[in-house]
Design a protein around this nucleic acid. Structure first.
Lengths: 214, 214
DNA sequence: TAGATTGTTAATCGATTAACAATC
DNA sequence: TAGATTGTTAATCGATTAACAATC
């Protein structure tokens, strides 16, 4: 008897990214989200892609349209939200209470995606005990207490590059499932933990290249 | 007589990104950059990709190796640096002197890529006239003065979402070639201006999805 | 009904990988 | 010389696009 009916969705990086873009335009563009129905070609033209692409992406998360009408806008929004896990609640911590850590702590969009910040960690004694945007700053030694206690699943790394690996190790030991790495360091983690890198230099390289060409 | 010998390189997004990763690992990993020669398979294993991929990428920027040796490490670093335009000097400005603007102004890596920050702009009278990390904060009305004066090519957008488009318009009118957009807004620019978006929510969506799966 | 839009199958395109002769 | 590594051509794979019957 197989009680586990859920078949694990396996969406590729590019598909997740496109779905997220559809979601963003449907939730923010007033013209789009006030109409009951939305056609794949309307979404497609928004991003200059093929309409078949959009239908296939939506089909992957079991969204089916109606000939001559298109897709129910609300349902599309809800389904993407659900399938991408944007409606699930996770706790997160930030390692590094510098400017970037502060900027991220300030970001109000997180709550939209069910992400709750529990604390920031730092090893600067002048910062420990203070708050950043109402969130407490604690010693990095408290990672092993706070993470299990609050069932923190996501660690956001905004510490200096040199301490990126050791901070990641602390987070992993304490039990996080995912690490969002804003440092330029390449960090190693066990394969059951996922890492998303936001190397600022990759974006910079692309801009430099295009400025040089033009 | 065609004096313009330069053939414009047309590297795809993915190639630029890989080249930048090669560059980063060669310049930061001590084991790699202390040896005179580097083989494509050594680089490839670093990123778990095929060695042919690496050779093809390098061939695109006219890097050719030597059988049984590999590629000259120094030459690879220099060529990538040059072809991606990392050795050219550009001036940049930041629009938005909030926490994120401050964090970016603080980022020391820019100088490595020939990027010089000229000023930050804000419309908050309490910030105008002050400095952030030694860079002056000026009124957004000064964009049209500063950008042409310093031949600023890159505008970094870290203002609130609601003013993203109007700030971008000011930058474009003043003559920037490229915009690095850290706001969630989708901005419209003339086609000769390039935009690179760093929507934080795209990364977040991917993390949410994976946390949901695991 | 007529026709706009879907869903699906087939065709195309491009990117990645495999195979292997060339070569230092 | 022998053999490790390149550069190139061919094969594979996957993603995108085109074509079109199904349908509300």
């Amino acid at each position: 008897m197989d009680l586990e009916k859920k078949t694990k969705l396996n969406l590729k990086h590019a598909v997740i990214e496109r779905l997220m873009h559809y979601y963003l335009c449907l939730t923010t563009d007033k013209e789009l989200n006030t109409s009951e129905w939305i056609s794949s070609s309307t979404i497609a033209s928004y991003f200059h892609i093929d309409d078949t692409q959009v239908r296939k992406d939506l089909a992957k998360i079991s969204l089916h349209g109606t000939p001559r009408r298109g897709f129910k806008t609300k349902k599309v929004i809800e389904n993407i939200r659900h399938e991408l896990g944007l409606d699930e609640v996770y706790n997160a911590v930030i390692v590094g209470a510098g400017r970037l850590g502060g900027a991220i702590a300030e970001y109000k969009g997180f709550q939209n995606y069910g992400l709750f910040l529990v604390a920031l960690f730092d090893n600067d004694k002048n910062k420990i005990g203070k708050t950043v945007n109402k969130y407490p700053v604690r010693s990095i030694h408290d990672i092993k207490i706070i993470v299990p206690q609050f069932k923190v699943q996501l660690g956001i790394l905004v510490c200096p590059e040199r301490s990126a690996q050791s901070s990641a190790d602390l987070l992993v030991e304490a039990g996080v499932k995912a690490i969002w790495n804003f440092t330029p360091a390449n960090i190693d983690v066990p394969e059951n933990v996922i890492v998303r890198n936001e190397h600022i230099s990759v974006g910079l390289a692309e801009l430099c290249f295009f400025m040089k060409q033009s």
